[in-house]
Amino acid sequence: MSDTTQNTREWPLWEVFVRSSRGLSHVHAGSLHAPDATMALRNARDLYTRRNEGTSVWVVPSDAILSSDPDHKGGFFESAQGKSFRHATYYTKSEGVKHL
């Protein structure tokens, strides 16, 4: 029966993000398996916030996340390299001048 196949299939994977306190971003805490979003959220609470680690939790289906390819990290992030003029420390003439 197709139902049996459905039931024995592994529950999908979810990524869990926890906001540890107000004013901070949600940070990736780990992952878990759950049959649906509601259960994923409850499991996330039980698994990742047993000691008041969070004031808010997000769960995201893992396969909904698109990630950059680590094998091509050089090329992908190239435009940020060699542009030290984007940092304040590049400008040194103002040394000794206050509040600058």
Binding site: E15, S62, I65, S67, S68, D69
Partner: peptide, 25 residues
């Protein structure tokens, strides 16, 4: 802080050719 860790996360490849095994090693 940390990127999601699931290994089957889809990746967008920005180059047609992969590096060879030795470079990866």
């Amino acid at each position: 802080m940390n990127a999601p860790q699931a290994d089957h996360l889809k990746a967008v490849s920005d180059a047609a050719l992969g590096e060879d095994e030795q470079a990866a090693q």
